[in-house]
């Protein structure tokens, strides 16, 4: 099977296309065949960029009337598949709305989903995915055996986003079928939590804290250091579970994947759950009391020491420079 057609779910970040969707468009373009985008909201505003990254058509589900994207986008995809045929693959961003869309679509068309995809290539006529398992210690390759379309939910930073030279994508409206009870969830208010500095998964420097900080209020050291390095503050699952830090800061298997130039892990032992989300960082600095901590096995610079001593001195030294 050559790849004839791929659909890419185009999500937003603010007014712009989410970086992860640009990565998916770039990947789809490299696999050959026709690339078509699927979005909602104001499609005209992004049609030029979607085209530049390789899609010829941008299907638009339109205004969601305050509803969450999962049910209407999945229903519109299923309706389009049943009326005019399925693409070979549908690439879905591994984010909050993406997973809702993939989950509902998979039930509607009774096709399985492969999630946590970090690599995708055509091999001997089928699309083979890569998945990092056991904290990234092993790479598992998988493929679908049944009929398509293959639904792939792809993690951020798996592919680089590169512009092509395509003209604007042609916007084609899709109607939303009757959703019945499934469309019952409505957004009544949106809250933007102001965070200074770059986003966790785009920051060139990420400073993360873990259980070794001892108590919740010590996380301020992580935030201070991140700010001084113009980076973002991350966290291990242990301290998110403990309620010290919101889930949005979590780095790892169940959180964000980050690949910064420098990753500083402070008081993090390096559970497999955490390592899978950060071992792609270009440089890793680890500070931990326990010389045997697994994090040291992947650190370019490891400091065996107490974070309560090292971090304040590091913060002071950096303050002295700025």
């Amino acid at each position: 099977m050559a790849v004839n057609k791929i659909w890419v779910i185009v999500d937003r970040q603010g007014e712009k296309i989410a970086p992860l969707s640009l990565e998916l468009l770039t990947k789809a373009r490299s696999l050959g065949g026709t690339v078509e985008g699927v979005t909602w909201g104001d499609a005209d505003a992004i049609a030029a960029d979607v085209g530049k990254y390789g899609a010829t058509t941008l299907f638009n589900v339109g205004d969601l009337a305050g509803g969450l994207p999962g049910p209407p986008v999945a229903a519109a995809l299923a309706a389009a598949i049943s009326s005019s045929g399925a693409p070979d693959a549908i690439l879905v961003p591994h984010n909050y709305d993406g997973r809702d869309i993939a989950a509902r679509l998979s039930v509607k068309i009774d096709r399985p989903v492969l999630t946590n995809v970090v690599g995708l290539e055509e091999t001997e006529g089928s699309l083979v995915t890569e998945h990092a398992i056991f904290g990234g210690a092993e790479v598992l390759k998988a493929r679908f055996t049944g009929e398509g379309p293959a639904i792939f939910v792809v993690r951020t930073k798996s592919f680089a986003a590169e512009e092509g030279d395509g003209g604007p994508a042609a916007v084609t409206p899709w109607e939303i079928p009757d959703l019945g009870a499934t469309g019952g969830a409505k957004i009544t208010d949106r809250h933007v939590e102001e965070s200074e500095g770059p986003k966790l998964d785009e920051a060139p420097v990420v400073v993360s804290g873990g259980r070794g900080l001892g108590q919740a209020d010590k996380y301020s050291m992580i935030e201070d250091l991140a700010k001084l390095l113009k980076g973002a503050a991350g966290a291990s699952r242990a301290i998110v579970d403990a309620g010290w830090v919101p889930y949005s800061h979590q780095v790892g298997q169940t959180g964000k994947t980050v690949k910064p130039t420098v990753y500083i892990a402070a008081g993090i032992s390096g559970a497999t759950q955490h390592m899978v989300g950060m071992k792609g960082s270009k440089n890793i600095v680890a500070i931990n009391k326990d010389q045997e901590a697994p994090i040291f096995s992947i650190a370019d610079l490891g400091i065996v020491g107490d974070v309560h001593k090292v971090l304040p001195k590091l913060i002071e030294a950096l303050q002295g420079r700025s």
Binding site: V139, K141, I284, F296, A299, L301, I303
Partner: peptide
């Protein structure tokens, strides 16, 4: 769906480890 293969990932080497 089927697993095609499971292989060890490219290992990251440990760098300098220093006691504070």
């Amino acid at each position: 769906q089927q697993v095609v293969s499971v292989e060890p990932a490219e290992a990251r080497k440990a760098g300098e480890i220093a006691v504070d």
